[in-house]
Amino acid sequence: MSGATGIDVRYPIGALFTVLGLILAGYGLATASDTARYEPSLSVNINLWWGLVMLAFGVVLLLLAWRSRAASADRPAEETPEGRLTEQREHVLGLEKD
């Protein structure tokens, strides 16, 4: 017996980048006046700008996952020809009892 994968991987990744993006951009905004802090990064407020990029990426992934939630329905192994063959083989070779 084989089963499905459960969740679309784009949800956790999208969530991670959305949260990290918000934290980073918020921190960048709060520290924007602190020029000494951003001297090592060539006076670029990398927290703010890159935080916004990460936020945008996270939101796009979440949207993609949400839009395709119906289309990407799980495909249990028994429903694909390859999956059925595996199951058969495991029984023929006596690799599994049940």
């Binding site: 017996m1 084989s2 089963g3 499905a4 459960g6 249990p76 192994a77 694909t80 999956g83 595996t86």
Partner: peptide, 17 residues
């Protein structure tokens, strides 16, 4: 994912899915 791991194929080969 904890409930999805029902068989050894799920656990070792992600149920080939």
């Amino acid at each position: 994912l904890r409930h999805v791991m029902r068989t050894s194929t799920d656990f070792f080969l992600s149920g080939r899915s």
